[in-house]
Write a protein that binds this DNA or RNA. Structure first.
Length: 278
DNA sequence: CACCATGTTCCTTG
DNA sequence: CCAAGGAACATGGT
């Protein structure tokens, strides 16, 4: 799933289901997801603990307990959900445990996700994109000292935590800035605008996620992009229809009709309108 | 078969 | 030492 909005929606979904539940029978089926810890150690530490809350830091998911806090990341293809305790484990299950009458499933087809109790990754993160410490001024300051393209800077979680490849393209389109623009060329006024569009872009996505009926296990057969777990069926809620520029290379800009372009930066695709974005 | 994919980390280069 | 860029990680979809 994973950029900030998808993780936020997932956290809100999991919270009421896991809060107050005891962790029992934790199993790791994909050991390569373990972050600086062994299966035995993780299972030993978490067994019997009660989950107090589910939180989020950037794209990381935090399981707060009456003991150590578990830190997890979905990578590119991670999913988390609960299913009946008696049901067979899904094919790509990476980690699972029993929570009350249900079984918690963390599955990850591509195995880019992670889980552990180390906060090393969290330590390196910058301000939350939707938090109070992330200000227009701070963004401007962070962009000043580098000639690296703005797209790359916004992907850096130490600059701002939560943006990923899709929403960076979307936010840059909304702010009229080309992904290739050197970050130190972003004026104070543009940084202010960019700050606003980042928050609007993420906020709108969360709002949409709240409004949809989602299938977190992905077993409904529907796959509509980022909230790929089903949409309520409305065509306009599908990813392709929602995005302003992401994935729309060769199609016409929704604002001016110019053909949308793609440029590869650091091995990742960026999309932009050559007229609307300077 | 070729190419693409929502992310992070590690290694190399400058 | 630091910044930037690329590759690696592993698998599925088109």
């Amino acid at each position: 799933m994973p950029e900030l909005p998808e993780v936020e929606i997932l956290v809100r979904h999991l919270r009421p289901q896991l809060q107050g539940k005891r962790i029992r029978g934790l199993q790791v089926l994909k050991p390569n997801l373990l972050d600086r810890i062994s299966e035995e150690e993780l299972a030993g530490l978490m067994e019997g603990l009660v989950i107090r809350d589910i939180g989020r830091r950037g794209k990381f998911i935090l399981f707060e307990t009456n003991g150590p806090r578990m830190v997890s990341h979905l990578g590119m293809t991670g999913r988390m959900y609960l299913q009946s305790a008696g049901t067979d484990l899904p094919r790509h299950t990476a980690v699972t445990w029993i929570a009350g009458r249900m079984r918690f499933i963390f599955e990850d087809a591509r195995s880019f996700g992670s889980i552990g109790i180390s906060d090393a990754s969290l330590q390196r993160m910058g301000p939350e994109a939707l938090g109070e410490t992330f200000t227009p001024d701070l963004l401007h300051q962070s962009l000043k000292g580098s000639r690296t393209p703005i797209k790359n800077r916004l992907m850096d979680q130490s600059i701002v935590a939560g943006l990923g490849n899709i929403y960076v393209s979307e936010a840059l389109f909304r702010s009229g800035i080309r992904p290739t623009l050197a970050s130190n060329k972003v004026s104070r006024a543009r940084a202010q605008r960019l700050w606003s569009t980042i928050r609007e872009t993420l906020g709108d996505a969360i709002e949409l996620g709240v409004s949809l009926s989602l299938d977190f296990s992905g077993t409904s057969g529907r796959n509509d992009g980022l909230f790929y777990f089903g949409s309520g069926g409305r065509k306009e809620d599908n990813a392709e229809e929602r995005f302003l520029v992401y994935g729309r290379e060769g199609k016409r800009c929704r604002q001016c009709g110019t053909v949308v372009r793609k440029v590869v930066q650091s091995n990742r695709s960026s999309f932009y309108c050559p007229v609307c974005q300077k």
